[in-house]
Design a protein around this nucleic acid. Structure first.
Lengths: 190, 190, 190, 190
DNA sequence: CTTTAATCGAGACGGTACGTCGTGTCTTAGA
DNA sequence: TCTAAGACACGACGTACCGTCTCGATTAAAG
């Protein structure tokens, strides 16, 4: 957005400060505490300043989450497909834990039922989690290790969903056995 | 619990009334509105009466959700396994939509990251969704259509997770194609 | 009241217990805390039991104060009038402090403007404080040390009021000088 | 206080409005009803607005009373001392009745035993009642009608206390006889 | 020595007020 | 000119008492 470029530098600085504070609060204390009052206090900024940038609390929370939703990067893999997928599953597990995915996903899901913007954001957020797997599959397809008529997104979802289900829906740890099982099953269907 | 039996019938009636009102509010306007003030007003009950039964707003919300979390019932199926599973997937889709699962799941997920009771409740809620599929598989196992060394819960999760993922995580509709695909893949691994 | 004699002994015991607890609370924490809830708790008695004996909180407070309002006793004095009066002023000062008169008077005055029963009670309470002085003057009159046409109650009030004023209205200590001054002035008018 | 001068005029207006409403309530229904909820309602102001200006209910009541405690003004008298004092006693009686002194004094006394600020306020309030008499005596002293070694405050208290006692402690009317008696006695001691 | 009636404990219930915290709107000064 | 400061109305929170009202469970007194 070139709009942001032209902005008063002070304004941009303040906006950043607020968002970063909001992120910190979200990770530290959960989405419940991403409140205009609390963020303003923590960022040492007037409450009204926040309202000048975002119309209400939900917008602030949404912007906060969107600021956290950055593409996950995985190193390009080029080993045999099975290995790459397994590695990617491992990375996924790691990302789930280290990036406090539960908090963010919870915040999104908590509003998604009533608020379409949150719904889109949740879609995006989940897609970002799945993206590296899609890339891995596409690379394999290019290398000829995967049939060209396969829909990489569908395949990725099939691979990823049991893992996310275990972690985000059942709130349980992800064992190596689960990852192995998922991989084995998937290989059988390829 | 015979304790509840001995309760003053009026008390029990009021408790029911409150919970039912809370359920209505939750389904109508979302978990955000399951507020002591709103529920009290809608149930035409004093705010303090609610506090006499539940210590705070979260407890009320939790109780409300737990009151909604009743085992899903599916008719016993005895057809060939593939058909039964496919039927069950269909039922699952139906239940997701008709029982406002998105609202409830969102409410749970929104608190689960901070509150263990909500986490347990979420676990339970998701299990209830999966349960009919588990039963179907167990029946098939008894009929000899499924190898006895299979873990029915694991299999059920593998079957169910792509569907839930599509609906709860990606917030998208569940197509027949998806259900077919899931079934086909699973059959290949059996 | 022979009515009270016929009462169930248990009832009488409980009534006493409540009143004594209320007195304790009044002296310890002030009239603000003579609350049905607090007294019931301190007396280890059900709240409803208190309501069975007094219709509401004000009645309880009033009864508590009335139970505290017992005639002040002074030893009969027979010395010369000036000495007796001075001694009585001293006793008055002592009683004001030791019997927590400020708390009780405050409680009474706080309700007297709105509630006639409290007003009567206050009148009585203040009279009791003045009574010993009246007796002293009457004794003096009988001994011929005071003209028979004097109104003992009026004289007592004239003697007592500057002292009460100093303590209850101005909330200040009562010095010996004040007592001496009051006595001297009064003697000049006799 | 120039601080108050600089205040936003709206703020000052609101503060005034609240205090005036509180005074009205106090005079109409007694100190018991000087409640944040009631005053807010009567002043058509949000409850929180009151809390922004006074930390709690007691502070509001105190401020209300202090706002009512304005110096009593008497016209300068220059007649003979005895007449002046008698006039002043009359004025005092009038003020007691017309300015609802019983309500205010009751409210003060009701809290004075527990709260030092109320105690100071009560002291001040009573002093204001006595003040005109002090002035009258000082004027007399200046005119040479009163010995210079007399303590005007003490004399005023001696004159005033029987009257206040009659009205505030005994809750009875103040007769002309009483005023005459008090004056006569006092003249004898001068 | 039991039975019967008054009294009590226990606690739900509708209320009112408290004092706190958050929201979103608005106005007034300042940098 | 943008921003800070903060007043304001509003609404919900959770707490503490109020006074009313069942219901058993005790207890005292009378049959």
């Amino acid at each position: 957005m070139e709009h942001e470029q032209r902005e008063n530098p002070r304004t941009r600085r303040v906006r950043r400060l607020i968002l970063e504070t909001a992120i910190t609060v979200l990770l530290e204390s959960g989405a419940q505490d991403v409140t205009v009052a609390i963020v303003a206090h923590r960022a040492d900024v007037a409450r009204t300043t926040i309202y000048r940038h975002w119309p209400d609390q939900q917008s602030l929370l949404l912007a906060t989450i969107q600021a956290m939703t950055k593409p996950h990067q995985s190193p390009q893999l080029a080993g045999p497909l099975a290995e790459d997928v397994r590695t990617e599953l491992d990375h996924l597990r790691t990302r789930l834990v280290t990036r406090e995915v539960r908090s963010v996903f919870g915040a999104l899901a908590g509003h998604a039922a009533q608020n379409d913007e949150f719904q889109s954001s949740q879609r995006l957020f989940v897609s970002e989690l799945t993206q590296p797997m899609v890339h891995t599959l596409e690379a394999a397809k290019r290398r000829g290790e995967l049939a060209t008529d396969r829909d990489c997104l569908l395949e990725a979802n099939l691979l990823v969903s049991p893992v996310l289900h275990q972690y985000l829906a059942l709130c349980e740890d992800i064992s190596d056995q689960l990852l192995d099982e998922v991989l084995d099953r998937w290989l059988l269907t390829t």
